[in-house]
């Protein structure tokens, strides 16, 4: 999973596989962080808007 595990090799297979994996994980992580931080900011500012679906 990480370059420091001993079976890691710097080949195309590893780059493509882990590239796609970390890309997907990053999108999820950034998206989630954005939602949580924005909600925290909105709550702190006392913003009020309708609930549920946009």
């Amino acid at each position: 999973m990480f370059p420091f595990s001993f079976e890691w090799v710097w080949d195309l297979g590893h780059l493509v596989f882990h590239g796609a994996l970390w890309y997907a994980l990053s999108i999820l992580g950034i998206g989630l962080a954005y939602c949580i931080l924005k909600a925290a900011w909105q709550t702190a500012r006392g913003e009020e808007e309708g609930h549920g679906h946009p």
Partner: peptide, 27 residues
């Protein structure tokens, strides 16, 4: 829903759900 933070969080998550759905479809 009575908790303001959760209300905002749910709203924000709905807002960018397309991004998550696209990632989900890819996976």
């Amino acid at each position: 829903q009575r908790v303001t933070f959760f209300r905002h969080l749910a709203h924000n998550m709905h807002g960018i759900m397309a991004v998550f759905a696209a990632t989900g479809a890819f996976l």
